[in-house]
Amino acid sequence: MRRFPLFASLVALLCAAFFLVPLAATVNFSLRMRRGEISLDAYASVFRDDTFLSVLGFSALASLAAIALGALLVVPTAYWVRLRLPGLRPLTEFLSLMPLIIPPVVLVFGYVRIYGTASVLPLTMSEAGTNLLLVIGYTVLSLPYMYRAVDNGMAAIDIATLTEAAESLGASRLRTIATVIFPNVRSAIMSGAFLTFSISLGEFVITSLLNRPAFGPYLVQMGQDYAYQPAALAIMAFAFTWACMALMDFFATRKPGQGLLPFLRRKSP
């Protein structure tokens, strides 16, 4: 019989407490808006706020645009590099990892200088241009994750054979990417997409410095103005992060051609 793992249990308990106490405290705080009783007033108040819905909509739209841009940029590149230009792999990989090294605040600093008023490409001069720059910023932030996810997805399928098969049936290059490669890495893209979504939805630094009416700056403003609503927002943010991570994980481990839900999986013989 094994000895009871006393020290290991102690460590696990301590860490579990460190993880759970802040969550419990936040839940508790978010329910205390009405003096002396438990209520969901803080949540109701958040949802009643028109600003909440408008900033959330804006951020969701910007994040979706960033995901689309990221996928459009990464899928053909990763495909092409794997198929035709393996020599460029170190370069594209390095470039895709660079945003991990460059802090967002530095990135946006460069943006406002280069694409500011006195530049050849004055993106920040117009509303649409600034929005575009925001989407580009989110895309850059998510590049490491998107590239990694898609590249892993490509490793799992035999793109050379698929490409040859498509070409021998007369498909053009574009058609091969759009109708053969893309569907096969859809899961990988989705996995990268959920991580991108969870990063960019509440992004604060780039958003705030580009002065966009998005969720991140709104959160900070709420924190300065109110007591209970921020706790409710934090709980919702935690749940949202959890959902994104679960979906990311689900799509990352899903194989091409597999059913959408795990319990509908066809049993392989």
Partner: peptide
């Protein structure tokens, strides 16, 4: 590990702030 940014600050204000639970 992905729960960072502004919401994390809120959670710790509710925990260890002047009126936090702990």
């Amino acid at each position: 590990s992905n729960f960072a940014g502004v919401p994390l600050a809120f959670a710790f204000i509710a925990t260890l702030g002047r009126l936090g639970l702990v």
